[in-house]
Write a protein that binds this DNA or RNA. Structure first.
Ligand SMILES: [Mn+2]
Ligand SMILES: [Mn+2]
Ligand SMILES: [Zn+2]
Ligand SMILES: [Zn+2]
Lengths: 141, 141
DNA sequence: ACCTGTTTTAAAATCATTCTAAACTATTGA
DNA sequence: TCAATAGTTTAGAATGATTTTAAAACAGGT
């Protein structure tokens, strides 16, 4: 492992294994994404964080990277609002609260939500994935 | 009821009750939407149908109308793909299959899907709505 | 028929995302 | 070490869905 490898730790290995060149940009973004617990970010949010961390990364690269990471299973795309995509660092099977006021996603913990009856998919189709979004807003009270 | 009223039937009443002027465009769109059973349409699909029915309606009006109908509870917006919104004429509580290959929505019938455990919403929030999307693709077989 | 506020519309604007093609860089193997 | 090569990044243009603008058309009431 070279100096970049030592400096960037786990991210370096992940990229090598995926056959993606460990570039400065990808390493930096991987670090922001994966060294801070479970996260749900939009492309713009991630760019803001990069900037805050003194990394200059173009939006095009942010999108490329988010899409590549999604493709190789490091991220998962979540659609809750027309026009904006969220990328989720938690790739385990789970569902979400969506806070309509703040436009933030939050994981629903394991057992808190359970599908009683899973529907039979239509003739000739198979279930790819099930997404449950619980939309919440600030209680009126 | 005037001649428009007679010609457009139920749609006319719906609009009057909602306080929206029963214009030619709104009546025509209401007819396409509500006189053909449960439907899931995008703005562009609806415009194509209008054209096929020899009604010239601008896309801006299609959007205005879909949004107004959604606002007054005649439609419900369903988000399944980034970048495109579907409008659902079935406003009852229900969930969806989404066919990834054809980009079509299909209602899941009443009892076919059941939430075993409904999660407690986070402190200070209340549940606005729960959306379940079962994404299916053509079975490999 | 006329007035007035509403609606429709073409066209421009917006916003997220993708594409293009040129500059840059990581990797490899002399 | 270095050049060659393929992969990557980027600014800027393009795209596509949706919204906005402002002007023309229209509906409902008089
Ligand atoms: Mn994508
Ligand atoms: Mn809307
Ligand atoms: Zn999540
Ligand atoms: Zn439906």
């Amino acid at each position: 492992m070279n100096s970049a490898g030592r400096r960037y730790g786990r991210a370096y290995e992940i990229l090598r294994e995926a056959g993606l060149r460990p570039t400065r940009q990808r390493l930096g973004l991987a670090r922001l994404l994966f060294e801070n617990g479970d996260r749900h970010v939009t492309a713009e949010q991630l760019q803001a964080e990069s900037t805050a961390a003194d990394m200059r990364v173009s939006l095009a690269t942010i999108y490329n990277t988010l899409n590549q990471f999604t493709q190789i299973g490091l991220l998962r795309e979540v659609v809750v609002e027309p026009g904006r995509s969220y990328f989720d660092t938690n790739t385990a099977d789970h569902h979400h609260f969506f806070h309509e006021e703040t436009a933030k996603l939050q994981d629903i913990e394991g057992e808190a939500i359970v599908l009683g009856a899973v529907p039979e998919p239509p003739e000739g189709t198979s279930v790819e994935r099930i997404d449950i979004i619980v939309r919440v807003k600030n209680a009126v009270n």
